[in-house]
């Protein structure tokens, strides 16, 4: 169990983290999701011991590790740009964590080589041990970095934007593969991402962060279906925001609804002046302006329904929506 209690961190005048509390259960796969500057990477680095909090504690299995350096926390850390040692072969990179051990704890040369080969097999890079990092593709380098982190047999695996530098196809394959690996090895993993799709697809639970605070912690389902704050509603998934009418909320309130949570009705809906229509997966994506107020709204209509034409007016009604006060602290992304 990883526990973060009341952690605060400042860089000069900038409050990177404010009073953070978080619990991670053994075996969980956790995503720290947020825009840049939200504090997600700082939190990851504090859990790793690469950065130290100004106040608060970090506990591993009930033990306070706040003052322990990264080497003594026994965590695997995968860097955003992999940080592979470019002058070492892939095998030497993977073996690094074993070769730097004190003599009495260090396995024999043969045992280290065997372990490196085993790890390379695990990350499907068998036979590439003699190459240098520069001779590998981005996805392969990423897996070398992972194998290197796993060599010290960490219980906790921390990954900083693990897929950030990869192209879309490789990213998707690697994601699925990482998920498998996490399960297979019984790890507890925390990864940082700004990509909501990645967080929702991969994580058991998602921690949404903004401006140095945690906005919401929950399963991908909870985060998407029941966002706790206007920020989460807006940041995760697509959301339309319109001012609340007298019937739905008070002054300054906003109604949030997803594009697919809208139905077209014959009467009693809001009038939407259709501006642009295109096919998006199994739906017509309709972009238009509300007749009242002129706000831009995007909605999805099932393709079984007639395709609206630009210039037409359709009546729409949100099937599912949430009302937020528009101006609480931290509401703006």
């Amino acid at each position: 169990m990883i526990k973060v209690q009341n952690v605060t961190k400042r860089f000069g005048d900038f409050a990177a983290l404010r009073d953070i509390d978080l619990e991670v259960r053994p075996g969980e796969f956790i995503a720290l999701l947020g825009p840049s500057g939200s504090g997600k990477t700082t939190l990851l680095r504090i859990i790793a011991g690469l950065e130290f909090q100004d106040s608060g504690q970090v506990l591993f299995s009930g033990e306070d590790v706040s003052d322990r350096k990264v080497a003594d926390r026994h965590v695997g850390f995968v860097f955003q740009h992999y940080a592979l040692f470019r002058h070492m072969t892939v095998a030497d990179n993977v073996a690094f964590g074993l070769t730097v051990r004190k003599r009495r704890d260090r396995p024999s040369r043969a045992a280290i080589a065997a372990r490196a080969e085993e790890l390379l097999r695990l990350v499907q890079l068998e036979g590439l041990g003699d190459r240098y990092p520069a001779q590998l593709s981005g996805g392969q380098r990423q897996r070398v970095a992972l194998a290197r982190a796993l060599a010290i047999e960490p219980k906790l695996l921390l990954l900083d934007e693990p897929f950030g530098a990869l192209d879309a196809k490789v990213r998707k394959d690697l994601r699925r593969w990482l998920r498998e690996l996490h399960k297979q090895m019984g790890l507890t993993s925390i990864f940082v991402t700004h990509d909501q799709e990645e967080a929702l697809e991969l994580a058991d639970r998602v921690v949404v962060m903004n401006n140095g605070v945690i906005e919401q912690v929950g399963t991908p389902e909870e985060i998407y279906m029941h966002p706790a704050t206007p920020f989460v509603s807006h940041f995760v998934g697509e959301t339309n925001r319109i001012p609340a009418g007298p019937a739905s909320g008070g002054a300054g309130d906003e109604v949030h609804f997803r594009p697919h949570d809208v139905e077209v009705v014959r009467e009693g809906g809001e009038a939407l002046l259709v501006d642009n229509v295109f096919r998006k997966g199994g739906a017509w994506r309709v972009e238009g302006a509300l007749a009242e107020g002129g706000l831009i709204v995007e909605i999805d209509i099932d393709v079984a329904q007639p395709r609206p034409n630009p210039g037409e007016t359709v009546l729409i009604r949100p099937v599912r929506s949430r009302v937020f006060n528009a101006n609480p602290e931290g509401a703006q992304p």
Binding site: A48, L50, K69, V70, A71, V75, G76, F77, F79, A83, L84, F85, F96, G97, V100, R101, R148, A149, A151, I152
Partner: peptide, 8 residues
Amino acid sequence: EAAVSLGA
């Protein structure tokens, strides 16, 4: 940092 995290 990578080296330190690996125990160097």
